[in-house]
Design a protein around this nucleic acid. Structure first.
Lengths: 262, 262
DNA sequence: TGGATTGACGTCACGCAA
DNA sequence: TTGCGTGACGTCAATCCA
């Protein structure tokens, strides 16, 4: 009980700090907002009210207050007494403040769901953030303009990464399919060439036959014009080297590396 | 005893207030939302850590109120008092089970160049970090194991992103080149087909000629076997639809989006 | 089986450079 | 001022150990 009083006093003291600062500086509406939240939360914490999920969204301070309260408790406190960590094998870091302590914990850092959705909404419209828009969003969401700016910056980064990833997968599938198509085309080209050579031979055979049968029969001009290129190189032959000599071009890096270093 | 503690705490708190107010002035009107900040400042003030650099940065705002409280407490406080020198990275924070990290040391953001290169070197060898290796690197680099773990984690994720990006560009160039190759192959196929049809006609012409000239001459079995497919469809004709009917497969998304939302 | 550790992932925020 | 790199935290899920 005494601890509660103590914590309360401390809390008041902290509030006092805030208020003093507010007097010194003009607080933004957000600051006031937070202060109010802080206040109400504190009340709840002192009464031992549970903050369920919503509290998760509350600011870090709220959570801290919770820790504050619990830690002020003799038992908890004694536990907390910092001793050289060496003696204790493991540090209980990150306690998983689950609901047991009542205040689950996210530190205030986490913006509230409403704020996030609000920002998210406006982010969807425009990823860029002009100063005036930033100020407007800040006041509308009860956040500090600085926070809004940071949020947008981080959001842009995340969005870029996400986009990059999905573009990569899309490109990868497209690449794979096109590689298959290319292989098919290559085989088709080979077949065509083979058949061309066959027809060339056939033409040659027929020509010979014609020549043999009718010695006076003139060779077709068409045949003469086409024969040379058929057997030897092809018009596009030059590209073949580039294609076949560099099979690594077809290699698809894949995402192996990404799993390699999870 | 209790009263003493209380008064002491209050005293410290008052001191903290003074410190905080001064800090706040420097700060933007940044929300009170950051009791965290206040906490941080308070903590710094109470500990009286010099840390020119560290104090300037305000470092981690994520300290929990719990840390604050524990630090405010005489016992804790006295313990904390021993400030480590600048040279000393930070003492084993341990404990603080609820307060999660509550890094007792100054949060020296920005690791020193040596530390970074040291970690970077070992990161190159192995991205994963087993506990023992972590502890070794921590002691060798003068960092907290926690910091090492965080550093490696961040390094992994950021490495992944970087890798993804470069793989994307590589894949993109490969894709573009292969698209060109595919186009060339397609045109080659067209030419081959055209030439095949020409040779077909030529063969037909020659066959007719042969038949005309030597009525008794039997047609070549080769010719018979090959003629039918030459004129009409082709063996690989079926693929053509897939290729030509879906030109969008060749479309390369490009990176426009990435520049669009820097 | 439940608490604890770890990696991954998302997120917030700082500080410097452009 | 903004963008980017970076430190750090919180949560989730898998896993380990007693």
């Amino acid at each position: 009980m005494l601890t509660l009083s103590l914590s309360y006093i401390l809390f008041r003291c902290m509030n006092g700090i805030v208020e003093i600062t507010t007097e010194i500086k003009v607080l933004s509406t957000q600051a006031v907002h937070s202060l109010l939240h802080h206040h109400t939360y504190l009340e709840g914490a002192i009464r031992g009210r549970e903050k369920a999920r919503a509290s998760r969204k509350t600011t870090t301070m709220n959570h801290k207050v919770g820790d504050l309260i619990s830690q002020l408790h003799p038992c908890v406190y004694t536990q907390m007494i910092p001793k050289q960590g060496e003696s204790i094998p493991r540090r209980r870091r990150r306690k998983k403040n689950t609901g047991d302590d009542g205040i689950s914990g996210a530190k205030k850092r986490q913006l509230s769901a409403e704020q996030v959705s609000f920002l998210e909404m406006h982010f969807g419209n425009e990823h860029k953030l002009e100063t005036e828009r930033k100020d407007k969003l800040a006041s509308d969401s009860g956040l500090d303009p600085r926070q809004v700016a940071v949020w947008f910056q981080n959001r842009r980064t995340r969005w870029k990464n996400k986009k990059l990833e999905e573009e990569y997968t899309k490109l990868k599938t497209a690449h794979e399919s096109i590689v298959v198509e290319k292989c098919l085309l290559e085989s088709e080209v080979l077949k065509l060439k083979e058949q061309l050579s066959k027809t060339e031979k056939e033409i040659q055979r027929l020509s010979d036959q014609v020549d043999r049968v009718s010695t006076g029969s003139p060779s077709s001009p068409l045949s003469m014009a086409m024969d040379p290129p058929f057997l030897g190189e092809f018009a596009l032959e030059g590209y073949e080297d580039a294609f076949y000599m560099h099979p690594e071009n077809n290699y698809i890096p894949g995402m192996e590396w990404i799993n390699q270093y999870i």
